[in-house]
Design a protein around this nucleic acid. Structure first.
Lengths: 282, 282
DNA sequence: CACCAAATGTAGTAAAATTACAACTTTGAT
DNA sequence: ATCAAAGTTGTAATTTTACTACATTTGGTG
C-alpha cells in the first residue's frame, strides 16, 4: 500500500507535532528518504522521538523501516497491471498494454502455481516410458511447443492435433505412460474424454488447466494456473503464455533432474541444427 | 536504473567476497532490505566493511543508501531480472527464475519493438487477401498459434509445418498476399528460401526475427525482437514467448482496426465453441 | 484551579554504519 | 623462485543514527 496515501488518510488521527512531520514529508518526500531522523526532526521543528512515534503510528517498525516504505512508494514506474485495451488506443498504447498485461498475468501465475506438484510432475516425466502432449484450439500450439521441447530430450514423445488420433493414442497407453493435457477452461468435452480414456488405460494424466474444472477432476495431477484473461478480445492470450512458461519450467526441471551428462546431449542436439542454418558472422 | 540488474551486470567486476554479497542479495532481496549491515555480512560470510564497499561500488553512498535503491527496485515495475538457472536449484528456485526471466525478457522485448512497423504490419494484415504463417522448429508452434488467432477473424489463413507445402504455398502467392515468417535466429536456411520465393511472387513478407539476419534481409518488413536468451538450457524459451506476445499485439491491432461490428463477429465465433464445452456451473 | 491524560521533549543508551589501518593474497616482473 | 606492488579482506575504534526511559509541558475537565 502506498504510504503517502496512508499519511494523507491518517492525517486526522495525528497529533499536532506529528502533523508537522506529515506535512514536511508530503512536501519533500524525496528529501525525506535521504535524511536522517535528526535532520527530518529539525526540518519539521519537532524532536526526534516524535518522528519515531510518527513512523510507528503508520505501522512501521521505526524510522529506517518507514524510509524503506516511503522509498518504495516513491519508486517510479507503475507496477504491471492488467490494463484492458481500449477501442481508441493507438499502436503504442495497445502494444504496451498487451505486453504489460502479459507480464502481470505471468506474475499472478507464478504466485498461484504449486511447486510441489511441479516437482512431482517432473518426477513423473523423467520416469515416463512415453509422454503425450494434447491440447485443442489455442492450447494445441502449447502442446505443439511441448513436443518440440521434450523431443530434444530423446524420450518417446507423442503429439496429435487430431482428436481421433489423440483418442487412439490414449487407448494404447500403458502403465508407465504420462499424458499431459492443456486446456485453459478445462471444459472442452473431447479433452475430458481423452483424460478418461488415458486413465482407464493406466496412464498418469497431468492436467495443465483450471482448478475444479471437469478436466481437472479426471486428472491424476493438476497444475492449475490462475490467469486473469482479458475477455474483451474473445481470444485466449495470457493463459497460453502462462502455460508455455510452465512448459519451460517442466522442461528445465527435467534437464536438471537428468544431470550434467544429459545436458551435453542437449548441446549436441542443438549443434546438429547448425547445418540447417546460415553461419553467424563474427 | 534497476539495481538488481546492475548487480547482475557488474558481477564480473566484483571481487570474490563482494560476489558472495551479490549472490545473497540476489537470492533474498526482500530479506536484504530488512537486514542491518551486520546481519547481511554474516549471511554472506564476509565482514561488514566488505558489504559497505560492495554498496559503494554500485555508486551508492553507503549501506543505507543502497537499501533505499534496492527497495525502490523491488517496488518498481520491473523487479524482474534475467537470472540463469543453476544446477543446484530446487523446484521453487527454478520455477521462480524461469517466470522472472520470462517477464524480464518481455520487458526488454517491449522496449525494443518498433511501434511504427507494428502499425504498418497491422495495416497490411487487414488489407491482405491471404495471410500465411510459417515457422520451423520451436517457431512452428508460434505460427500455429497465429493461425489459431487469425482464423477467428474470418480471413483466409494458411499454415503448414511441412517445408515442401510451405514452398508450394508461397509459389502460388499473388499481389495482395502477406507471408509472416517466425524465426528467432533468422538463420534457418529453408525459411530464408521461403521468403525469397514469396517475394518473387509479389507477396509482402513480414519477418518476426532478429535484426540484420539473413532472413531479415529478405523481408519487406522486419519486426525485430531483442530477447536475451538463456543459452545454458540449449532451448529457445523466452524468444518464443516474446513472439507470441507480438502475435497477440498484431491480432489486437487487427481487431481494433476492423472496429466494433467485427468484434461482434468474434464474440459469435467464441460462442460457437460453447457447444464443445461442458457448461460452467454458477 | 487543581488534576489527569495526552503530547512532546531531553538526555542517555544501544545499535548501526563508517573509517583507518593492519594482515593477508594475488600478480607480475626480475 | 623471490620479492615488491597492488589489490583484497578483516579487526578494532570512531562516528553517526536511532531508540528508550523518563521528565516536562500542554490542554482539557470536574
Amino acid at each position: 500500500m502506498n504510504i503517502l496515501e496512508k499519511i494523507t488518510q491518517n492525517k486526522a488521527v495525528f497529533s499536532k507535532s506529528e502533523r508537522k512531520v506529515a506535512d514536511i514529508i508530503l512536501a519533500h518526500p524525496q528529501t525525506a528518504i535521504h535524511s536522517s531522523i535528526a535532520t527530518l526532526a529539525k526540518m519539521s521543528d519537532v524532536s526526534e522521538p516524535t518522528v519515531n512515534r510518527f513512523c510507528r503510528r503508520l505501522d512501521t517498525k521505526g524510522y529506517p523501516d518507514f524510509k524503506l516504505h516511503l522509498a518504495q512508494s516513491l519508486a517510479n514506474g507503475t507496477p504491471y497491471v492488467n490494463r484492458h485495451v481500449d477501442e481508441n488506443d493507438g499502436p503504442q498504447e495497445y502494444t504496451n498494454k498487451i505486453f504489460e498485461s502479459t507480464m502481470a498475468s505471468l506474475e499472478v501465475a507464478r504466485q498461484s502455481v504449486d511447486v510441489n506438484i511441479i516437482n512431482r510432475v517432473v518426477d513423473l516425466l523423467t520416469q515416463a516410458q512415453k509422454i503425450s502432449f494434447f491440447g485443442l484450439g489455442a492450447s494445441a500450439s502449447v502442446a505443439h511447443d511441448a513436443l518440440n521441447k521434450f523431443f530434444r530430450f530423446n524420450v518417446p514423445v507423442v503429439y496429435f492435433e487430431d482428436v481421433v488420433m489423440q483418442r487412439m493414442s490414449c487407448m494404447n497407453c500403458t502403465d508407465g505412460d504420462v499424458v499431459v493435457l492443456f486446456s485453459h477452461t478445462g471444459r472442452t468435452k473431447s479433452l475430458v474424454e481423452i483424460a478418461q480414456i488415458a486413465r482407464r488405460n493406466d496412464a498418469t494424466v497431468v492436467g495443465i488447466t483450471s482448478q475444479d474444472s471437469p478436466l481437472a477432476n479426471e486428472c491424476s495431477y493438476v497444475l492449475s494456473l490462475e490467469v486473469p484473461e482479458d475477455t474483451d478480445m474473445y481470444m485466449p492470450m495470457a493463459s497460453r503464455i502462462a502455460q508455455l512458461t510452465l512448459v519451460d519450467v517442466l522442461a528445465t526441471g527435467f534437464t536438471l533432474r537428468r544431470g550434467n551428462k544429459f545436458r551435453e546431449n542437449l548441446k549436441r542436439v542443438k549443434d546438429t541444427l547448425r547445418d540447417s542454418r546460415y553461419d553467424k558472422p563474427d
